[in-house]
Design a protein around this nucleic acid. Structure first.
Lengths: 233, 233
DNA sequence: CTGCCTATTGTTGTATGCAATCGGTCGCTT
DNA sequence: AAGCGACCGATTGCATACAACAATAGGCAG
């Protein structure tokens, strides 16, 4: 039996979104290699929709940096940004330090102003579930789901920061990071995941200084681990 | 004679691109205020094209963070990310430090490997023209063109870095920064522009350390200047 | 044989038409 | 009168059809 129900997705999520996610998944996990030419008609036939949703999906993926397009000349799958890894991690470090700090500041503000908003609680609840799911996965040795959970955790923190700009930037960088990690199933999974609860605690405590410091260290370790593994020696 | 040929743009640049640039300009420079509802039909009529180019333009602007859209519910102009200014500058600092460092490294590599590529020379030439244009504008006291020249200079450095990922990220952040500066015509124009030649010289000399340091300081000063002017006292 | 010019083909860009969905409003029930 | 549910206009999402452009293959001159 296929042991991969990572996308139960009850309702069918709008053709365009579905196509976009499918293509991105195929790019990240190898089915569509860098340099391959992708035509709207072929993808439309493959996914059983018209060219318009495919077209919009390709444009979105172009904005995310997964495909390159030229007017009237078609699109090709981008190269994996392996040479940019170190710099991407550096930017990510500054970016996530900012989101963690802001999230903690916002938590403090919300609690000191009476009751947090319903939106805050929703995201916070989602993060709690994520932490539990990750712990369970670690306990069961099911490390291959951690990258996905990891990205969702960090994006959740960005949501708590309340900054749409920073969240959008993180989403863009996360895509690249996931792409870089696609060939490396577990990197330093177990140890890295454990640090998440510390960050969450600092945010809940409304402690911007600790939140920023812990997040920066967390991302920095991720960077060092990646470079140790993949950097040209 | 009109002394402003910054956009000679001989050929008409594809309806979709034109519409996208027009809408973005209207958002940044006030004609479209945050929160206003924008419908595809209205914009299509305004620009004399079909809904499709307008639609794609809106999607691109959504990816750039200028409009928010929800399925079947339409789009609205985003809020100016004034609360995110400090964090955006912080990320930009890390980002541009990386591009400057890489550009210098790449310059060194290109020169030590014989002759730089034609592509490199093209961008380098464009930057030289930009520096001259900026100097002339400063000399004439025509400070209102500096923000535009400034962004193009920094994006040019990103091009020299040879990293599509970093360039895309900078493009996204630059849009927000330009938006933040839209109400402030000259900020610290003259002084800031003078620093560009120092950065360029460090890159030409193939000195990554100086390039990174100068660029980081340059962006940092820009950040401080903005916060001094606009931050809530 | 080589280089350039042209015709053709495949692909994207845009226009129009229809179906699906959202927001608000009116009417009904309690 | 207040709450609630169904209808209706407005708007987006998608499909089909046509036009514009780039890339490539073939012919012709040199």
């Amino acid at each position: 039996m296929p042991l991969l129900p990572p996308e139960p997705e009850s309702a069918d999520p709008a053709p365009k979104q579905r196509v976009q996610d499918e293509i991105r998944h195929d790019i990240i996990f190898g089915s569509l290699r860098p340099g391959t030419r992708v035509t709207e008609a072929a993808l439309a036939a493959k996914y059983g929709v018209s060219r318009i949703p495919v077209r919009e999906a390709l444009r979105a993926l172009e904005a995310e940096g997964f495909v390159d397009s030229r007017p009237y000349a078609g699109s090709t799958v981008s190269e994996i940004p392996v040479d940019d890894a170190d710099d991407l991690f550096a930017v990510r470090e500054a970016l996530e330090a900012a989101t963690a700090r802001r999230a903690a500041r916002r938590a403090l503000a919300q609690f000191s102003a009476g009751e947090p908003s319903v939106e805050w609680w929703k995201t916070r609840r989602l993060l709690a579930d994520l932490l539990d799911d990750g712990d369970q996965a670690v306990a069961e040795g099911n490390l291959k789901v951690l990258p996905e959970l990891n990205i969702r955790f960090h994006l959740g923190i960005a949501d708590l920061s309340g900054s749409a700009s920073l969240t959008a930037l993180l989403r863009q960088i996360s895509g690249k990071i996931e792409w870089l990690y696609a060939t490396d199933v577990d990197h330093r999974g177990k140890q890295s995941w454990g640090e998440h609860r510390l960050i969450m605690a600092a945010i809940d405590a409304g402690n911007p200084v600790d939140a920023e410091r812990l997040m920066a260290g967390h991302v920095h370790q991720s960077r060092v681990g990646y470079l140790d593994r993949f950097a040209t020696p």
